[in-house]
Amino acid sequence: MKFQKIPAIKSSEITEQSIFENRRQLIKLAMVSTVGLLVPTPSMAKIYSKIPSGKQSVNLETTDFKDVSNYTNYYEFTTNKQDATHLAKNLKTDPWSVTVEGEVEKKGTFFLEDILKNNALEERIYRFRCVEAWSMVVPWIGFSLADFIKQFKPTSKAKFVEFTTLYDPEIMIGQKTKVLDWPYVEALRMDEAMNPLTFMATGMYDDALPNQNGAPLRLIVPWKYGFKSIKAIVKIRFTEKMPVTAWNKMAKKEYGFFANVNPEVSHPRWSQKRERILGASIFTPKRTTEMFNGYGEQVAGLYSNMDLKTFY
């Protein structure tokens, strides 16, 4: 067997360290200046006004924006729900790109800007139920995951779709601690991903997503516990085998792969029968949790021959 000799790299070819370290800024600068010459870029806020309401939207009273945006589980920054708000401000969400790989015809890395051009935005008011037994109602803005996935032409081998959050411990300082095995990974079975309810959000409350709520791109699966709805997605991979997901890996008995909202299956350490409504007065009793978070009509069929006590 022959080995090809690797030629030594000439010192003139080596990129200066400072340039290498600032490559993202340089690329961004180059992009911004080029685009700036051609067309004035519309501000992000503009694209989030007058969004039509989607078919899947439920007519519910929404939770106050201040409650939704100041009570987030974003362990990439901190395990404190309030502190995530200011810590997440350090995250740069523009430019942003998403890599698509695995069992799919159209692999590649795509700029979020282009993704937004190809996917018409709509608003969907959904219930959101956290595994910690609290809930809220959020007017998300984004596009259907099914429509998005079709653009990449998954092959017949694609049985699951896996999502990965950005890994950048310098900014996402929570990633310096080992609370979870970073980066955060979540996944759906293909039929779950293709369900019309499954949504990719880039905005909420008529504006772009605040960083702490998962900007610039997050998943929303309203019939599953909130931890399935992964934030700040940088990679989407189509696989044949069931992916290993972050919380499931951390504590298998506490957080299942499916994680469907189910009042009959308790978390090992607390009941899931009821939920605290965020923003409600202190005298409001808990709400009774609904099977599939109230979305049974649309999704129960996905699990018709599965024992949900085993596949929680």
Binding site: H267, R269, W270, S271, R274, I282, F283, P285
Partner: peptide, 20 residues
Amino acid sequence: CLDLSFSMDQLMDEIPKSPY
């Protein structure tokens, strides 16, 4: 008073699940 809203049912649901 506030978390359980004096609900005995709720306490009975929570106790076996939550030893703490």
